[in-house]
Design a protein around this nucleic acid. Structure first.
Lengths: 225, 225
DNA sequence: GGATGTGAATGCATTCACAGCA
DNA sequence: TGCTGTGAATGCATTCACATCC
């Protein structure tokens, strides 16, 4: 089979694919063999039409009158996402967040494995953290080549993140998961995905403000308008 | 000033507001007094029109011929996002991730302060972790009321996340930042924002796959189609 | 009957392009 | 001239609704 050249695939659809996968695995654990777009949609607060259209962007996986075979759909979606094989991933930054990521068990069965950890702090280099020996940044290039690493996680402070990103790009890394609160600039052939706590919390604070405003609220001093 | 009833405000616009805020603060640190929609846009790979429209959803903050006054715009955006005052936040889950969150210095100056930490593990309850004494879940209700907490962070394993969410909702929490890899179901008046590592990594793996596929690739065994 | 896959219709979000102001 | 704010135009994404198949 040729792989997927997502001609007209909406980006949100790809994102939802991950969610479908997780639900499917949950349904599988409950020994459900087959599932309808309605069931799958309900479990994620999406419409059945949305689910069908999303899946249909990638092929015809369902059976009219029956639904989707759970096992089959899991395999299909994993193949689409590229997680039907293990990805070697590197981590830069062995601070608190880095430690948490190293300890996180969830990666393995999602198809990702952290295989190398780097830090710029000479005091950390060559020490052991959990199962990993922290390497100096100078080792990036050889390690990436030796282990065939294509994805990197950046968990360093904001002010060094762009420099690290540049180094990763220079070594040929193709995708970066960024935890630092800056927007990285990278060439267009490199994928970047960001986890940004400030943004997420601000989103919530905005939402909650709306709500409390909508019902009742402290007198509210003026501030122009 | 009346607060914002976002009548026709696109959701993505709210998300970008957070990004604008961060860039503005960076520009301010470099002593830039005024900024155009073009400059701000370029720094985030967005168009000038996008920036202007986003800001215009909330009011008229700019000065034709000049641009936006940096200080002023920072204040305005903070007010819109609700981060012009400090939010007390609680954290449930004192595992590796929870520890990293407790240690994270970035919250404070973004307007968020973790003021209480809970865990269900009796072995952790009443022990100190950094500056915090872990409390049992039974203390949720009284603590939330006493400290006026409206936002909660869930950093527990997937299988207990929904139960914790239910408890938070029951105590009147209005917004939840969820790190557990499940989609929580909560009443519509409660805001949820999710940080999902699996989803983010799968997004990258999808992107990278496209790329490598687009150029050259291992022979690729068949698999139907 | 029960479910998929999919064009057509609707609804959002982004971009254009320009009037108007400093 | 330089830049904002904004209707109008375009382009995406979601939803509808139905022909089709088990």
């Amino acid at each position: 089979m040729e792989n997927f050249r997502p001609e007209g695939v909406p980006n949100p659809a790809v994102r939802r694919l991950s969610l479908y996968l997780r639900q499917l695995e949950a349904f599988k654990r409950q020994d459900q063999r087959t599932i309808s777009s309605k069931q799958l949609g309900d479990s994620l607060a999406l419409t059945d039409a949305q689910v069908r259209k999303d899946l249909a962007y990638f092929g015809q996986f369902g059976h009219p009158g029956i639904g989707y075979r759970v096992d089959d759909l899991i395999a299909r979606v994993k193949h689409i996402l590229g997680t039907d094989k293990i990805w070697n991933v590197l981590l830069v930054g062995a601070g608190n967040l880095g430690l948490a990521l190293m300890a996180y068990k969830g990666f393995e069965n999602q198809g990702f494995r952290i295989v190398a950890v780097f830090d710029s702090d000479p005091g950390k280099v060559n020490t052991r953290r959990g199962a990993f020996v922290i390497q100096p940044l100078g080792e990036l290039q050889p390690t990436i080549w030796k282990l065939g690493i294509r994805l990197g996680i950046i968990a360093v402070p904001a002010d060094s993140a762009q420099a690290i990103a540049d180094q990763l790009v220079a070594t040929g890394i193709q995708g970066i998961l960024n935890f630092a609160p800056v927007s990285l600039s990278v060439p267009s052939h490199v994928g970047v995905s960001a986890v940004d706590l400030a943004v997420q919390l601000e989103q919530l604070s905005f939402l909650v403000n709306i709500h409390t405003t909508a019902q009742q609220r402290v007198p509210a001093r003026d501030a122009s308008t």
